[in-house]
Design a protein around this nucleic acid. Structure first.
Lengths: 140, 140
DNA sequence: GAGTCAATCTTGAATGATTCAAGAAAACAT
DNA sequence: ATGTTTTCTTGAATCATTCAAGATTGACTC
C-alpha cells in the first residue's frame, strides 16, 4: 500500500491535473476513510487555501472517474478512499466511528447470491460490519 | 405478514400508548421502508394532524425500544421498518430507490465472519444489495 | 510562448434531513 | 380526580451537501 502518483492517477483517468485535485488525492493517501472536512483541512495544509466547495467538486469528479470510492455508513457523513475496484468491505466502530477495510471471507464476489432477490437484478453487495475498534474495546 | 396490534406492541415494550405512536406504527405496517416524510403524511391522513417532529420522536422511541429498525442506504434519508430481530438484509434499486427485504443465503447470521477484522469486535453484519428493481428493469 | 475555450475553482446562498429547546397537552399511577 | 412525567407542538438551529454566477486555470493549437 504505497502512494500512487496523483498526477499519473489523474492523467490516467482523463482528468485535468489541478493543484486541488493533487492535494486531495494526497490527503486521501494519508487518510483513508476520511470525511470531506478532514480532507479539506489536510489539503489546505498542503496548498495554503482551497474552498470546501472545491474539495466537494474534486471528490465528485474522482468518484465519477472511478478513482475514489465513496462510502456512507449510517450516521456518518460521506467518507472516501482510494482503494477501488477490488471488492472489499468495512468495519465501523460504533463508539468512535473508526473505519477499517475488511476483505470478505467468502471469496472474490462475496454475498452476491441472496436467497430471494424479489426480482431485483443485483450488481453489488455492500457489507458493513458494526462493532467496536481495538482502542474502544480496551478503554471501555 | 399481517398487522401486529400497535397498542399491544407499545405496551409490550413498556412504551406509552399515544395517538401519534399508534398512527406511525400503522403507517409502518402499510409502508415498510418508508421515510419520515411519507410516514408523517400517512399518519396525518389517519389523525388529522401530527407534527413532523412528533413523527421523528416516535420513530426514535420505537427504534430505541427495538420495535422498529432504522436503515440508511447511501444517498437516501433514513427509512424504517417493523420487521426486526431477524437477520435480514435489503436490496435497493439504484434508479428509483425502491427497497425490498432479502434473507441472506448463508444462514442465520450471515457474513459475520470476515477474513481479518483488524482487531474489531464485530456484532453485526449489515448487507445492502444494489441493483435494479423489476419495474425499472422493464422500462429501462 | 500567446491565444483560446472548456473545465474547474471561489464565493455566497439555498436546500434537505435532522436535531435542539421551551412550553402546552396528554398518559398513566395513585 | 390529581399530580407527575412523558410526549407533542411550535419554531429555530445545525450539519452535510448542492446550486449558481463569475473569475481563474489547464491544456491544446498555432
Amino acid at each position: 500500500m504505497h502512494a500512487a502518483d496523483p498526477v499519473a492517477l489523474l492523467r490516467g483517468s482523463g482528468l485535468r491535473v489541478t493543484r486541488p485535485r493533487v492535494a486531495v488525492i494526497h490527503a486521501l493517501e494519508q487518510h483513508p476513510h476520511a470525511e470531506v472536512d478532514r480532507l479539506a483541512e489536510v489539503a489546505r495544509a498542503d496548498l495554503g487555501a482551497v474552498s470546501t466547495q472545491a474539495v466537494y467538486d474534486v471528490l465528485r469528479a474522482l468518484t465519477e472517474a472511478g478513482v475514489v470510492r465513496r462510502i456512507e455508513p449510517a450516521g456518518s457523513p460521506a467518507r472516501f478512499e482510494l482503494r477501488v475496484g477490488d471488492n472489499h468491505h468495512h468495519v465501523v466502530c460504533r463508539s468512535c466511528g473508526a473505519i477499517a477495510d475488511v476483505d470478505c471471507a467468502v471469496g472474490a464476489r462475496p454475498c452476491l447470491d441472496a436467497s430471494d432477490t424479489q426480482g431485483f437484478v443485483i450488481d453489488e453487495a455492500e457489507v458493513t460490519y458494526w462493532g467496536t475498534c481495538p482502542d474502544c474495546t480496551q478503554i471501555h
